[in-house]
Design a binder for these strands. Structure first.
Lengths: 232, 232
DNA sequence: GATTTTTTATTGGTACTACCATTAGACCAT
DNA sequence: ATGGTCTAATGGTAGTACCAATAAAAAATC
Protein backbone atom coordinates (compact mmCIF):
# COMPACT_ATOMS: atom_id res chain seq x y z
CA UNK A 1 0.00 0.00 0.00
CA UNK A 2 1.35 3.37 -0.94
CA UNK A 3 0.24 4.88 2.33
CA UNK A 4 2.94 7.46 2.63
CA UNK A 5 2.84 10.39 4.96
CA UNK A 6 4.49 13.72 4.27
CA UNK A 7 8.02 14.02 5.56
CA UNK A 8 9.28 17.06 7.35
CA UNK A 9 12.88 17.36 8.37
CA UNK A 10 12.97 17.51 12.17
CA UNK A 11 14.83 20.52 13.46
CA UNK A 12 17.45 19.95 16.11
CA UNK A 13 15.97 22.29 18.68
CA UNK A 14 12.64 20.52 18.32
CA UNK A 15 14.24 17.19 19.09
CA UNK A 16 15.92 18.66 22.14
CA UNK A 17 12.70 20.27 23.32
CA UNK A 18 10.79 17.03 22.88
CA UNK A 19 13.35 15.09 24.87
CA UNK A 20 12.89 17.46 27.78
CA UNK A 21 9.11 17.34 27.30
CA UNK A 22 9.21 13.57 27.49
CA UNK A 23 11.14 13.65 30.73
CA UNK A 24 8.43 15.86 32.16
CA UNK A 25 5.71 13.54 30.91
CA UNK A 26 7.35 10.50 32.41
CA UNK A 27 7.70 12.32 35.70
CA UNK A 28 11.49 12.20 35.63
CA UNK A 29 11.50 15.97 35.73
CA UNK A 30 9.11 17.49 38.24
CA UNK A 31 8.17 21.07 39.10
CA UNK A 32 11.00 22.76 40.94
CA UNK A 33 13.73 20.67 39.35
CA UNK A 34 16.59 22.50 37.72
CA UNK A 35 18.01 21.67 34.31
CA UNK A 36 21.76 21.70 33.76
CA UNK A 37 23.25 24.98 32.53
CA UNK A 38 22.95 25.72 28.84
CA UNK A 39 26.60 25.04 28.17
CA UNK A 40 26.35 21.60 29.74
CA UNK A 41 23.13 20.82 27.90
CA UNK A 42 24.77 21.79 24.61
CA UNK A 43 27.57 19.35 25.34
CA UNK A 44 25.20 16.56 26.39
CA UNK A 45 22.99 16.97 23.34
CA UNK A 46 26.00 17.34 21.10
CA UNK A 47 24.73 20.60 19.69
CA UNK A 48 25.54 24.26 19.94
CA UNK A 49 24.42 26.49 22.73
CA UNK A 50 22.33 28.49 20.28
CA UNK A 51 20.25 25.48 19.41
CA UNK A 52 19.74 24.59 23.05
CA UNK A 53 18.64 28.13 23.74
CA UNK A 54 16.05 28.01 20.97
CA UNK A 55 14.68 24.81 22.46
CA UNK A 56 14.54 26.41 25.89
CA UNK A 57 12.84 29.45 24.39
CA UNK A 58 9.99 27.28 23.13
CA UNK A 59 9.67 25.48 26.43
CA UNK A 60 9.66 28.78 28.26
CA UNK A 61 6.96 30.16 26.02
CA UNK A 62 4.93 27.03 26.63
CA UNK A 63 5.11 27.77 30.34
CA UNK A 64 7.02 24.56 30.98
CA UNK A 65 10.21 26.10 32.29
CA UNK A 66 11.20 29.39 33.83
CA UNK A 67 14.67 30.85 33.25
CA UNK A 68 16.56 32.74 35.90
CA UNK A 69 19.85 34.50 35.54
CA UNK A 70 22.67 34.72 37.96
CA UNK A 71 24.81 32.50 40.09
CA UNK A 72 22.34 29.84 41.12
CA UNK A 73 20.08 30.49 38.16
CA UNK A 74 19.12 28.10 35.43
CA UNK A 75 16.07 26.55 33.83
CA UNK A 76 13.53 25.44 36.41
CA UNK A 77 10.51 23.27 35.75
CA UNK A 78 7.46 25.31 36.67
CA UNK A 79 4.13 24.38 38.08
CA UNK A 80 1.67 24.77 35.27
CA UNK A 81 1.54 28.47 34.51
CA UNK A 82 -1.41 29.14 32.19
CA UNK A 83 -0.16 32.62 31.38
CA UNK A 84 1.59 31.50 28.23
CA UNK A 85 -1.43 29.68 26.90
CA UNK A 86 -3.61 32.66 27.66
CA UNK A 87 -1.29 34.85 25.64
CA UNK A 88 -1.42 32.44 22.72
CA UNK A 89 -5.20 32.49 22.81
CA UNK A 90 -5.10 36.26 22.73
CA UNK A 91 -2.84 36.07 19.71
CA UNK A 92 -5.38 33.83 18.06
CA UNK A 93 -8.08 36.36 18.79
CA UNK A 94 -6.10 39.06 17.05
CA UNK A 95 -5.46 36.85 14.08
CA UNK A 96 -9.17 36.50 13.55
CA UNK A 97 -9.28 32.87 14.57
CA UNK A 98 -11.23 33.79 17.67
CA UNK A 99 -13.45 36.58 18.87
CA UNK A 100 -14.03 37.80 22.40
CA UNK A 101 -17.61 36.62 22.02
CA UNK A 102 -16.33 33.11 21.36
CA UNK A 103 -14.38 33.17 24.60
CA UNK A 104 -17.16 34.51 26.77
CA UNK A 105 -19.61 32.14 25.15
CA UNK A 106 -17.43 29.13 25.84
CA UNK A 107 -16.84 30.38 29.33
CA UNK A 108 -20.56 30.56 29.97
CA UNK A 109 -21.06 26.96 28.90
CA UNK A 110 -18.08 25.66 30.82
CA UNK A 111 -18.83 27.63 33.94
CA UNK A 112 -22.24 26.04 33.90
CA UNK A 113 -20.65 22.60 33.96
CA UNK A 114 -18.34 23.78 36.73
CA UNK A 115 -21.27 24.92 38.85
CA UNK A 116 -22.98 21.56 38.46
CA UNK A 117 -19.88 19.75 39.63
CA UNK A 118 -19.19 22.25 42.41
CA UNK A 119 -22.63 21.74 43.93
CA UNK A 120 -22.11 18.03 44.42
CA UNK A 121 -18.39 17.96 45.15
CA UNK A 122 -17.61 21.17 47.00
CA UNK A 123 -16.80 20.86 50.69
CA UNK A 124 -17.88 23.30 53.35
CA UNK A 125 -14.30 24.54 53.52
CA UNK A 126 -14.42 25.29 49.79
CA UNK A 127 -17.58 27.31 50.29
CA UNK A 128 -16.00 29.17 53.20
CA UNK A 129 -13.25 30.30 50.84
CA UNK A 130 -15.88 31.61 48.47
CA UNK A 131 -17.55 33.46 51.31
CA UNK A 132 -14.24 35.02 52.32
CA UNK A 133 -13.68 36.11 48.74
CA UNK A 134 -17.06 37.82 48.61
CA UNK A 135 -16.39 39.63 51.88
CA UNK A 136 -13.02 40.83 50.62
CA UNK A 137 -14.58 42.08 47.40
CA UNK A 138 -17.18 43.99 49.37
CA UNK A 139 -14.56 45.70 51.48
CA UNK A 140 -12.54 46.64 48.43
CA UNK A 141 -15.64 48.05 46.80
CA UNK A 142 -16.21 50.31 49.77
CA UNK A 143 -12.58 51.42 49.55
CA UNK A 144 -13.04 52.17 45.86
CA UNK A 145 -10.08 49.94 45.01
CA UNK A 146 -11.46 48.95 41.64
CA UNK A 147 -8.47 47.03 40.34
CA UNK A 148 -8.04 44.91 43.43
CA UNK A 149 -11.75 44.19 43.47
CA UNK A 150 -11.70 43.09 39.84
CA UNK A 151 -8.87 40.72 40.65
CA UNK A 152 -10.91 39.29 43.53
CA UNK A 153 -13.84 38.74 41.20
CA UNK A 154 -11.62 36.78 38.86
CA UNK A 155 -10.36 34.77 41.81
CA UNK A 156 -13.95 33.93 42.67
CA UNK A 157 -14.39 31.96 39.49
CA UNK A 158 -11.11 30.15 39.97
CA UNK A 159 -12.09 29.27 43.54
CA UNK A 160 -15.37 27.99 42.17
CA UNK A 161 -13.50 25.75 39.75
CA UNK A 162 -11.42 24.50 42.66
CA UNK A 163 -14.64 23.33 44.32
CA UNK A 164 -14.81 20.66 41.63
CA UNK A 165 -11.43 19.31 42.78
CA UNK A 166 -10.64 18.56 39.16
CA UNK A 167 -7.28 19.96 38.00
CA UNK A 168 -8.27 19.97 34.34
CA UNK A 169 -11.29 22.14 34.96
CA UNK A 170 -9.24 24.40 37.21
CA UNK A 171 -6.63 24.78 34.50
CA UNK A 172 -9.19 25.61 31.83
CA UNK A 173 -10.89 28.13 34.06
CA UNK A 174 -7.60 29.81 34.96
CA UNK A 175 -6.71 30.06 31.30
CA UNK A 176 -10.03 31.57 30.34
CA UNK A 177 -9.85 34.06 33.17
CA UNK A 178 -6.34 35.04 32.13
CA UNK A 179 -7.66 35.89 28.71
CA UNK A 180 -10.61 37.83 30.05
CA UNK A 181 -8.44 39.69 32.54
CA UNK A 182 -6.36 41.04 29.70
CA UNK A 183 -9.33 42.17 27.67
CA UNK A 184 -11.94 43.38 30.12
CA UNK A 185 -11.86 46.76 31.69
CA UNK A 186 -13.01 46.71 35.32
CA UNK A 187 -16.71 47.14 35.90
CA UNK A 188 -17.66 50.40 37.48
CA UNK A 189 -18.36 50.51 41.18
CA UNK A 190 -22.12 51.02 40.89
CA UNK A 191 -22.58 47.60 39.33
CA UNK A 192 -20.63 45.79 41.97
CA UNK A 193 -23.29 45.96 44.64
CA UNK A 194 -25.54 43.90 42.43
CA UNK A 195 -22.72 41.47 41.78
CA UNK A 196 -22.09 40.97 45.47
CA UNK A 197 -25.73 40.36 46.23
CA UNK A 198 -25.85 37.87 43.37
CA UNK A 199 -22.78 36.11 44.71
CA UNK A 200 -24.34 35.76 48.14
CA UNK A 201 -27.48 34.25 46.68
CA UNK A 202 -25.37 31.92 44.58
CA UNK A 203 -23.36 30.77 47.56
CA UNK A 204 -26.53 30.06 49.50
CA UNK A 205 -27.70 27.81 46.68
CA UNK A 206 -24.36 26.03 46.74
CA UNK A 207 -24.53 25.39 50.47
CA UNK A 208 -28.06 24.09 50.04
CA UNK A 209 -26.78 21.80 47.26
CA UNK A 210 -29.41 23.31 45.01
CA UNK A 211 -28.13 22.72 41.50
CA UNK A 212 -30.98 24.39 39.72
CA UNK A 213 -30.83 27.53 41.82
CA UNK A 214 -27.06 27.82 41.57
CA UNK A 215 -26.88 27.40 37.80
CA UNK A 216 -29.78 29.80 37.31
CA UNK A 217 -28.16 32.48 39.46
CA UNK A 218 -24.81 32.08 37.77
CA UNK A 219 -26.06 32.12 34.20
CA UNK A 220 -28.22 35.12 34.98
CA UNK A 221 -25.16 36.90 36.31
CA UNK A 222 -22.95 35.89 33.40
CA UNK A 223 -25.38 36.76 30.65
CA UNK A 224 -25.89 40.13 32.33
CA UNK A 225 -22.15 40.66 32.28
CA UNK A 226 -22.09 39.47 28.69
CA UNK A 227 -24.62 42.12 27.69
CA UNK A 228 -22.71 44.73 29.64
CA UNK A 229 -19.61 44.17 27.57
CA UNK A 230 -21.45 43.68 24.33
CA UNK A 231 -22.16 47.39 24.08
CA UNK A 232 -18.53 48.35 24.34
CA UNK B 1 3.43 55.20 50.10
CA UNK B 2 6.01 52.50 49.74
CA UNK B 3 3.95 50.79 47.11
CA UNK B 4 6.76 49.46 44.97
CA UNK B 5 6.35 46.80 42.35
CA UNK B 6 9.06 44.33 41.42
CA UNK B 7 11.17 45.34 38.45
CA UNK B 8 12.22 42.90 35.81
CA UNK B 9 14.69 43.80 33.08
CA UNK B 10 13.06 43.31 29.68
CA UNK B 11 14.95 40.96 27.43
CA UNK B 12 15.76 42.07 23.92
CA UNK B 13 14.06 39.19 22.14
CA UNK B 14 10.89 39.89 24.12
CA UNK B 15 10.88 43.48 22.97
CA UNK B 16 11.33 42.35 19.39
CA UNK B 17 8.58 39.77 19.70
CA UNK B 18 6.21 42.30 21.19
CA UNK B 19 6.87 44.77 18.40
CA UNK B 20 5.86 42.15 15.87
CA UNK B 21 2.86 41.18 18.01
CA UNK B 22 1.77 44.80 18.09
CA UNK B 23 1.94 45.05 14.33
CA UNK B 24 -0.35 42.05 14.15
CA UNK B 25 -2.69 43.60 16.70
CA UNK B 26 -2.92 46.86 14.78
CA UNK B 27 -3.61 44.96 11.60
CA UNK B 28 -0.43 46.19 9.93
CA UNK B 29 0.64 42.58 9.58
CA UNK B 30 -2.08 40.27 8.36
CA UNK B 31 -2.23 36.52 7.75
CA UNK B 32 -0.19 35.61 4.71
CA UNK B 33 2.21 38.52 5.03
CA UNK B 34 5.91 37.75 5.01
CA UNK B 35 8.40 39.21 7.44
CA UNK B 36 11.81 40.35 6.19
CA UNK B 37 14.60 37.78 6.35
CA UNK B 38 16.27 37.26 9.68
CA UNK B 39 19.42 39.04 8.66
CA UNK B 40 17.45 42.11 7.65
CA UNK B 41 15.39 42.02 10.83
CA UNK B 42 18.55 41.85 12.90
CA UNK B 43 19.83 44.95 11.16
CA UNK B 44 16.53 46.82 11.53
CA UNK B 45 16.23 45.99 15.23
CA UNK B 46 19.90 46.73 15.77
CA UNK B 47 20.45 43.34 17.33
CA UNK B 48 22.11 40.08 16.48
CA UNK B 49 20.54 37.41 14.36
CA UNK B 50 20.56 35.07 17.35
CA UNK B 51 18.29 37.36 19.30
CA UNK B 52 15.92 37.79 16.38
CA UNK B 53 15.73 34.04 16.01
CA UNK B 54 14.82 33.57 19.67
CA UNK B 55 12.02 36.09 19.22
CA UNK B 56 10.82 34.28 16.11
CA UNK B 57 10.99 31.01 17.98
CA UNK B 58 8.53 32.27 20.57
CA UNK B 59 6.20 33.65 17.93
CA UNK B 60 6.34 30.38 16.06
CA UNK B 61 5.53 28.42 19.20
CA UNK B 62 2.59 30.74 19.79
CA UNK B 63 1.28 29.82 16.35
CA UNK B 64 1.64 33.41 15.17
CA UNK B 65 4.15 32.80 12.43
CA UNK B 66 5.26 29.85 10.36
CA UNK B 67 8.85 29.53 9.17
CA UNK B 68 9.81 28.13 5.80
CA UNK B 69 13.25 27.49 4.47
CA UNK B 70 14.52 28.02 1.00
CA UNK B 71 14.71 30.69 -1.64
CA UNK B 72 11.37 32.39 -1.22
CA UNK B 73 10.96 31.19 2.35
CA UNK B 74 10.74 33.35 5.43
CA UNK B 75 8.45 34.00 8.37
CA UNK B 76 4.81 34.12 7.34
CA UNK B 77 1.93 35.33 9.48
CA UNK B 78 -0.43 32.40 9.88
CA UNK B 79 -4.16 32.26 10.02
CA UNK B 80 -5.08 31.43 13.56
CA UNK B 81 -3.72 27.93 13.98
CA UNK B 82 -4.97 26.48 17.26
CA UNK B 83 -2.58 23.55 17.05
CA UNK B 84 0.14 25.37 18.91
CA UNK B 85 -2.19 26.30 21.73
CA UNK B 86 -3.36 22.72 22.03
CA UNK B 87 0.22 21.56 22.46
CA UNK B 88 0.82 24.10 25.19
CA UNK B 89 -2.30 23.03 27.04
CA UNK B 90 -1.14 19.45 26.83
CA UNK B 91 2.16 20.42 28.38
CA UNK B 92 0.35 22.12 31.21
CA UNK B 93 -1.77 19.06 31.81
CA UNK B 94 1.26 16.84 32.07
CA UNK B 95 2.81 19.26 34.51
CA UNK B 96 -0.21 19.18 36.76
CA UNK B 97 0.47 15.56 37.48
CA UNK B 98 -3.07 14.78 36.56
CA UNK B 99 -4.40 11.29 36.29
CA UNK B 100 -6.35 9.69 33.51
CA UNK B 101 -9.36 9.83 35.79
CA UNK B 102 -9.03 13.60 36.04
CA UNK B 103 -9.10 13.95 32.28
CA UNK B 104 -12.01 11.62 31.64
CA UNK B 105 -13.91 13.22 34.49
CA UNK B 106 -13.42 16.71 33.13
CA UNK B 107 -14.24 15.48 29.71
CA UNK B 108 -17.53 14.07 30.92
CA UNK B 109 -18.53 17.38 32.43
CA UNK B 110 -17.45 19.43 29.45
CA UNK B 111 -18.91 17.08 26.90
CA UNK B 112 -22.19 17.48 28.66
CA UNK B 113 -22.04 21.21 28.11
CA UNK B 114 -21.04 20.58 24.51
CA UNK B 115 -24.05 18.37 23.93
CA UNK B 116 -26.39 21.01 25.32
CA UNK B 117 -24.95 23.59 22.96
CA UNK B 118 -24.87 21.18 20.03
CA UNK B 119 -28.55 20.40 20.35
CA UNK B 120 -29.57 24.01 19.94
CA UNK B 121 -26.86 25.18 17.54
CA UNK B 122 -26.05 22.22 15.32
CA UNK B 123 -27.22 22.37 11.72
CA UNK B 124 -28.54 19.44 9.74
CA UNK B 125 -25.27 19.40 7.81
CA UNK B 126 -23.38 19.05 11.08
CA UNK B 127 -25.52 16.10 12.03
CA UNK B 128 -24.98 14.52 8.60
CA UNK B 129 -21.26 14.59 9.29
CA UNK B 130 -21.85 12.76 12.55
CA UNK B 131 -23.94 10.18 10.72
CA UNK B 132 -21.19 9.67 8.16
CA UNK B 133 -18.69 9.22 10.96
CA UNK B 134 -20.82 6.52 12.58
CA UNK B 135 -21.20 4.68 9.28
CA UNK B 136 -17.47 4.78 8.71
CA UNK B 137 -16.79 3.46 12.19
CA UNK B 138 -19.22 0.61 11.59
CA UNK B 139 -17.46 -0.37 8.38
CA UNK B 140 -14.07 -0.27 10.04
CA UNK B 141 -15.37 -2.44 12.86
CA UNK B 142 -16.47 -5.09 10.38
CA UNK B 143 -13.03 -4.91 8.78
CA UNK B 144 -11.41 -5.35 12.19
CA UNK B 145 -9.36 -2.21 11.64
CA UNK B 146 -9.21 -1.36 15.31
CA UNK B 147 -6.81 1.55 15.12
CA UNK B 148 -8.65 3.35 12.34
CA UNK B 149 -11.93 2.81 14.15
CA UNK B 150 -10.55 4.25 17.37
CA UNK B 151 -9.43 7.31 15.46
CA UNK B 152 -12.91 7.67 14.01
CA UNK B 153 -14.40 7.49 17.48
CA UNK B 154 -12.15 10.30 18.57
CA UNK B 155 -13.18 12.27 15.52
CA UNK B 156 -16.80 11.82 16.54
CA UNK B 157 -16.32 13.85 19.66
CA UNK B 158 -14.47 16.57 17.79
CA UNK B 159 -17.25 16.70 15.20
CA UNK B 160 -19.70 16.99 18.04
CA UNK B 161 -17.79 19.95 19.41
CA UNK B 162 -17.87 21.51 15.95
CA UNK B 163 -21.65 21.40 16.12
CA UNK B 164 -21.42 24.15 18.71
CA UNK B 165 -19.63 26.38 16.19
CA UNK B 166 -17.52 27.71 19.04
CA UNK B 167 -13.79 27.57 18.29
CA UNK B 168 -12.82 27.66 21.95
CA UNK B 169 -14.89 24.60 22.78
CA UNK B 170 -13.53 22.87 19.68
CA UNK B 171 -10.02 23.69 20.80
CA UNK B 172 -10.60 22.35 24.30
CA UNK B 173 -12.19 19.17 22.98
CA UNK B 174 -9.36 18.56 20.54
CA UNK B 175 -6.87 18.97 23.34
CA UNK B 176 -8.68 16.60 25.65
CA UNK B 177 -8.94 14.02 22.89
CA UNK B 178 -5.25 14.42 22.12
CA UNK B 179 -4.43 13.63 25.71
CA UNK B 180 -6.76 10.67 25.79
CA UNK B 181 -5.44 9.37 22.48
CA UNK B 182 -1.97 9.22 23.94
CA UNK B 183 -3.12 7.14 26.90
CA UNK B 184 -6.00 4.98 25.79
CA UNK B 185 -5.55 1.61 24.28
CA UNK B 186 -8.26 0.90 21.70
CA UNK B 187 -11.40 -0.71 22.97
CA UNK B 188 -11.86 -4.28 21.91
CA UNK B 189 -14.13 -5.04 18.99
CA UNK B 190 -16.91 -6.64 21.04
CA UNK B 191 -17.73 -3.40 22.77
CA UNK B 192 -17.98 -1.39 19.61
CA UNK B 193 -21.37 -2.70 18.54
CA UNK B 194 -22.85 -1.25 21.67
CA UNK B 195 -21.05 2.01 21.03
CA UNK B 196 -22.42 2.27 17.53
CA UNK B 197 -25.95 1.60 18.65
CA UNK B 198 -25.55 4.20 21.36
CA UNK B 199 -24.26 6.70 18.82
CA UNK B 200 -27.25 6.16 16.57
CA UNK B 201 -29.65 6.73 19.43
CA UNK B 202 -27.72 9.82 20.44
CA UNK B 203 -27.84 11.24 16.92
CA UNK B 204 -31.59 10.67 16.77
CA UNK B 205 -31.97 12.72 19.95
CA UNK B 206 -29.85 15.46 18.43
CA UNK B 207 -31.93 15.61 15.27
CA UNK B 208 -35.06 15.74 17.39
CA UNK B 209 -33.48 18.60 19.37
CA UNK B 210 -34.11 16.57 22.49
CA UNK B 211 -31.62 17.91 25.01
CA UNK B 212 -32.57 15.59 27.84
CA UNK B 213 -32.39 12.47 25.72
CA UNK B 214 -29.09 13.45 24.13
CA UNK B 215 -27.33 14.30 27.38
CA UNK B 216 -28.66 11.16 29.03
CA UNK B 217 -27.45 8.95 26.22
CA UNK B 218 -24.05 10.59 26.11
CA UNK B 219 -23.39 10.53 29.84
CA UNK B 220 -24.51 6.91 30.01
CA UNK B 221 -22.02 6.09 27.28
CA UNK B 222 -19.22 8.09 28.83
CA UNK B 223 -19.61 6.81 32.35
CA UNK B 224 -19.67 3.28 30.96
CA UNK B 225 -16.39 4.01 29.19
CA UNK B 226 -15.09 5.59 32.36
CA UNK B 227 -15.76 2.39 34.30
CA UNK B 228 -14.23 0.32 31.54
CA UNK B 229 -10.92 2.11 31.90
CA UNK B 230 -11.07 2.38 35.63
CA UNK B 231 -10.18 -1.31 36.00
CA UNK B 232 -6.99 -0.91 34.00
C1' DG C 1 11.12 23.98 -29.45
C1' DA C 2 10.21 21.41 -25.41
C1' DT C 3 12.02 18.96 -21.64
C1' DT C 4 15.34 17.86 -18.42
C1' DT C 5 19.35 18.98 -15.84
C1' DT C 6 22.45 22.16 -13.65
C1' DT C 7 23.61 26.23 -11.62
C1' DT C 8 22.81 30.01 -8.54
C1' DA C 9 20.92 33.11 -5.22
C1' DT C 10 18.05 33.32 -1.16
C1' DT C 11 16.96 32.04 3.39
C1' DG C 12 16.29 29.38 7.53
C1' DG C 13 19.23 26.02 10.62
C1' DT C 14 23.44 25.03 13.17
C1' DA C 15 28.06 25.74 15.12
C1' DC C 16 31.52 28.26 17.54
C1' DT C 17 33.55 32.06 20.01
C1' DA C 18 33.65 36.02 22.74
C1' DC C 19 31.83 39.08 25.87
C1' DC C 20 28.16 41.43 28.80
C1' DA C 21 24.76 41.51 32.80
C1' DT C 22 22.94 39.69 36.72
C1' DT C 23 22.83 37.00 40.70
C1' DA C 24 24.25 34.65 45.11
C1' DG C 25 27.47 33.78 48.19
C1' DA C 26 31.97 34.62 50.39
C1' DC C 27 34.90 37.77 52.16
C1' DC C 28 36.17 42.20 53.97
C1' DA C 29 35.71 46.89 56.09
C1' DT C 30 33.63 50.16 58.72
C1' DA D 1 26.00 44.16 62.58
C1' DT D 2 25.71 46.67 58.55
C1' DG D 3 27.26 47.72 54.21
C1' DG D 4 30.65 47.23 50.48
C1' DT D 5 33.67 44.44 47.34
C1' DC D 6 35.14 40.46 45.06
C1' DT D 7 34.32 36.19 42.66
C1' DA D 8 32.28 32.44 40.32
C1' DA D 9 28.23 30.77 37.94
C1' DT D 10 24.83 31.41 34.44
C1' DG D 11 21.60 33.39 31.27
C1' DG D 12 21.62 37.19 27.44
C1' DT D 13 23.64 39.27 23.34
C1' DA D 14 26.89 39.86 19.43
C1' DG D 15 29.31 38.37 15.43
C1' DT D 16 31.02 35.16 12.00
C1' DA D 17 31.06 31.22 9.29
C1' DC D 18 29.06 27.48 7.13
C1' DC D 19 25.32 23.93 6.06
C1' DA D 20 20.75 22.62 3.94
C1' DA D 21 16.81 23.30 1.49
C1' DT D 22 14.29 25.71 -1.95
C1' DA D 23 12.78 28.02 -6.16
C1' DA D 24 13.90 30.50 -10.03
C1' DA D 25 17.00 31.13 -13.76
C1' DA D 26 20.25 29.24 -16.96
C1' DA D 27 22.17 25.61 -19.52
C1' DA D 28 22.14 21.23 -21.64
C1' DT D 29 19.87 17.59 -23.90
C1' DC D 30 16.62 15.48 -26.76
Amino acid sequence: MHDFSPVKAPRTFEVIGNQIRDQVRRGILKPGDKLPPERTLAEQFGSSRNTVREALRSLEHAGLISLQKGAHGGAFITDGDPGAVAQSIQDLMHLGGLSLADVTDARLLIENAVVVAAVTRGTDEDFDQLAANIDAAETLTRDRDIDAKAERNIQFHILLAECTHNPVLILIMRTLMDVLRAVHRPVTAEDTDDIIRSRRRFLAHLRARDTGGATAEMSRHLSRLHDLFEVH
